Simulated scan of single mutants.
Amino acid sequence: MSGPVDPARIRDAIAQFGRTLGPDVLASCRALFGAQQEALSCAVPAAARDLAYGPHERHRLDLYGAAGEAPKPVLLFVHGGAFVGGDKGDPSDPARWHNGAVGRMAARRGWIGAVMNYRLAPDHPWPAGAQDVGAAVDFLRAHAADHGGDPDRIVIMGTSAGAAHVGGFLRLRPDHADLVRGAILLSGLYGITPLEPKDEEYYGAADSACDKSPLEALASTPLPMMMACAQYDPARFQAEYLGLLQKRLTRHGALPCSMSLPGHNHYTIAMHLGTSDRRLEDSIAEFCDRLFA
């Protein structure tokens, strides 16, 4: 997509995709935002790439945002990929710009953006992804200050499988409220709906996976939480969103910050961040600014 941005054209194209998932839809969605993300990639390059937060080759994260006179808040992003794929993004590869968008958005907001990789299923089943989120948080707690970040002001954010891994981190680490200020969940799987066969590559057989769910931790944690889903998310992800909202309401007597984003699908809910469509970005910024104050 080239030339001036046409929001109506983008909305119409996403509506035509409907709730369908797959590599062709993913590639088409990338093309819709490619020109804007390329421009942002040039304007906000990574400040540090492939920092090792652990021993595995996928224990790597990129940082966006320059050090300032005072330490900056940190937004850590965990990409999606159905537990078996995905990448933190590579500015040299147009097919992989989109996951770095969250880091660039954070930098443009005056924060430090951290975008991580994690080990993938089936070679690394549960709880590898959740453990890796914890390891990345530990790394940022120890080293964010070296790159201009404030280790006491970290918010974690995940989309799709990444949101499930954020939930897993909350479950595995009882000290999570001492480590991060809040959590942002986009179109994730939280334990509301039954596992599907593809999920078993990470969680194992459905009849043995119930004790691996992050649902109880997500429902009970006092950690401030923001949740969002997309208008064209598959019904399962919308049910997960509504189910966790209800669980949070029951436990806490109030809904968390939440947003059902019109005109987007399962891929574009995170992919578009940093572009001219700032509805979700502005909501994320409002949520984080309250926590970072």
Rank of each mutant, 00 (worst) to 15 (best):
L63N: 09
I14V: 15
A15T: 12
H176E: 00
R278A: 14
A101G: 15
R108L: 01
P91V: 08
F77M: 12
F77D: 05
F33D: 07
P222E: 00
K198S: 12
I14D: 02
P23G: 13
V78G: 01
L170T: 07
P214V: 06
F17L: 06
Y202C: 05
V74T: 05
I10A: 07
M116W: 05
D211Q: 12
P174F: 01
G149W: 06
A101M: 13
R108Q: 15
L76E: 07
D50C: 03
H59V: 02
R96D: 11
F17D: 13
Q37C: 00
A161L: 06
A135E: 11
L170E: 03
H176G: 01
P122T: 13
R171C: 02
G65F: 03
S258D: 12
P94Y: 08
D150Q: 13
D123I: 01
A254E: 09
E200G: 05
D152F: 03
I184G: 04
P151G: 04
H59K: 00
Y190C: 05
A209N: 08
A161N: 04
P45S: 00
V74K: 01
G80Q: 11
A142L: 09
P94H: 12
D93V: 11
G158F: 00
W97D: 00
K212L: 09
R58S: 03
G103F: 02
R96Y: 07
L195Y: 00
L215D: 10
G168N: 10
F33L: 12
R248N: 11
H79I: 01
D138N: 11
R11D: 14
G80P: 10
R279M: 12
L245C: 15
G158Y: 01
A270E: 14
C42S: 15
P174S: 02
L215S: 10
R119C: 00
A47H: 13
R173E: 12
V166R: 03
G54T: 04
L280C: 13
L120P: 07
L61A: 09
R96S: 14
A254R: 14
D132W: 02
P256Q: 10
V137H: 01
I269Q: 06
L40V: 06
D175A: 14
R30V: 02
C229H: 13
A70P: 01
V5T: 15
T20Y: 00
L291C: 08
D123H: 11
D289N: 14
V25D: 07
I284A: 02
W126I: 04
V5L: 10
A161V: 04
D152I: 01
E240L: 10
G81Y: 03
Q36P: 09
A101K: 11
I10V: 15
I269K: 10
P23S: 15
R236C: 08
L249W: 11
K212Q: 13
L26G: 12
V133W: 03
E38G: 15
M227Y: 09
H124Y: 02
N265Y: 08
A205S: 14
G148R: 08
S283F: 11
V44C: 09
P45W: 02
G81P: 02
A183N: 05
G274N: 09
I156S: 02
H147N: 02
R49N: 08
R30M: 11
H176D: 04
A183F: 02
S283L: 13
L280D: 08
